[in-house]
Amino acid sequence: MNMAVDLGWYLALAALLFCIGVAGVLTRRNALIIFMSIELMLNAVNLTFIAFSRSLTNVDGQVFVFLVMAVAAAEVAVGLAIIVTIFRHKETVDIDKVNLMKW
């Protein structure tokens, strides 16, 4: 396999993206931004799968990525509907203000 860029770089990039996503989920307070950070984590996963798949010349990882993308799309549909419901009640999507029950 003749790859221009070493596998380690792809993995490092994916790990960095994943950590940015985790940091976003933990520090941001807007439900939509948290949601975007989660999508970033999922895309870091996809990048990891693709990098391994290419370096191992095994297509299973690419198939997995398609499934992750399909599931992420379903999650977006449900998640945005839930966020809209919250907005109707509260007029805000700040998760610190969504606190009828203690976290």
């Binding site: 993995l11 439900a31 949601f35 999922l42 870091a44 996963v45 998640g79 919250i86 969504v98």
Partner: peptide
């Protein structure tokens, strides 16, 4: 309350899915 439960479940559930999937990707590799 129902909407709040759904939001909390959704955000934390999707967050956990991210960890699960990253773990699977690393196991795969």
């Amino acid at each position: 309350r129902s909407g709040e439960a759904a939001l909390k479940y959704f955000l934390l559930g999707a967050f956990a899915t991210g960890f699960l999937l990253y773990g699977m990707a690393l196991l795969y590799g």
